[in-house]
Amino acid sequence: MSQFSRIGVVGCGLMGSGIAEVCARAGSEVRVVESGEQALALGRSRLTASLDRGLRAGKLTEAERAAALGRLSFHTTLADLADCDLVIEAVAERLDLKRAVFKELDGILTDPAAVIASNTSSIPVIELAAVTTRPAQVLGVHFFNPVPVQRLIEIIPTQVTDAAVTEQVMNFAADTLGKTAIRARDRAGFVVNALLVPYLVSAVRMLESGIASAEDIDNGMVLGCAHPMGPLRLLDLIGLDTAQSIAESMYEEYKEPLYAPPPLLRRMVAAGTLGRKSGQGFYGYGENP
């Protein structure tokens, strides 16, 4: 069985809202939880705007949009997820925050077979499974931004994840969500970020050392290597704070200098210039990023 009937999504930021959208569009009942009413309203607005864009682009009909919205509900307490059979955590990329969510969910979910998954970009999933009483039902499901568009999901079982749980989630990703699922070992960075992050932070170091401008670095990779987006624009899309967290997690795991976030990246994050979501990163995005 690949279908989950009730899905909880913890966090309704860029990733959480996208995950909730694709699950609702695929036919699942989805309950979204945020930390407060203001964050919840912002997340609901973000999700509705995404559905509206899909409608305008002809990616879904008015009836499909209405059906997806009808499958969504919005909440501010994890207790509202008690009878979910799959909960996907999509909070900020911080180990302490994620562990707190996992521990609370473990005590709330009424079905002992319910699956708890993390959308972490880089944190070893076993660090989250260890705070639960159901480590066999814990794994990583790493979506990519923007979730409704990007077709990949990384599935990351730990060394103690039940093989049947892994297969169920792999099948759900492919058969229900229509994504391509790849399996990765539980190592910081998994497949994509283990290859991508050294490339991105190298671009920051290149800019920091004055070798080339941001525009020339990005044009070099777009026009010279046929990348759809240059590394610095991609960092702005990902979010510089998220990129820093991923780089720190990978450096902590491997102690390889190529993973360490450069000083320029740290200073930009400290200054609140986080990329598109803040309106300013390596490029400016005006008032409506």
Rank of each mutant, 00 (worst) to 15 (best):
V149I: 11
Q3F: 14
N145V: 00
M15F: 08
R65K: 15
L237P: 02
D162L: 07
R276L: 11
F172S: 03
G272I: 08
A243V: 09
Q280C: 13
D85Y: 08
A100R: 15
S45Q: 15
T132V: 04
F190Y: 10
S5M: 14
V115N: 02
R233M: 08
R99N: 11
V101Q: 04
F172R: 09
R183Y: 03
L240D: 10
S209E: 12
T166K: 15
F144Y: 04
G36L: 12
G11N: 00
E34T: 08
L234P: 03
A136E: 15
A82W: 03
L223D: 11
A212Q: 07
Q159C: 13
N119Q: 00
L97S: 14
A181K: 02
E64I: 07
L95W: 08
G286V: 00
H75C: 07
A136R: 14
R276C: 02
R151M: 13
G140S: 06
V115T: 11
A174R: 14
L86W: 07
G178I: 01
E154H: 05
T242Q: 09
V149M: 10
A113S: 13
G284R: 12
V141S: 12
A130N: 10
G230T: 09
V33Y: 06
E104L: 00
E253M: 11
A41W: 07
R99D: 10
A260Q: 14
R151V: 14
L81V: 01
A57E: 14
A203H: 08
T161V: 00
A92Q: 10
L240Y: 01
A41K: 13
G140N: 00
V125P: 11
A270P: 03
P135S: 07
G8F: 06
L223H: 12
I246N: 03
G27I: 06
L14P: 05
R94V: 10
G70C: 01
V33Q: 01
V87I: 01
A226K: 13
D96C: 11
E21M: 15
A57R: 15
G13S: 05
L69N: 03
L240C: 02
N171C: 11
I19R: 10
G58I: 02
D241T: 04
Q137T: 10
I88M: 12
G210D: 05
Y199W: 07
P231C: 06
R6P: 04
L105Y: 05
A82F: 09
R53F: 04
I155A: 08
D186A: 06
N219E: 13
A24W: 06
E29T: 14
G239P: 05
P257K: 03
T120D: 13
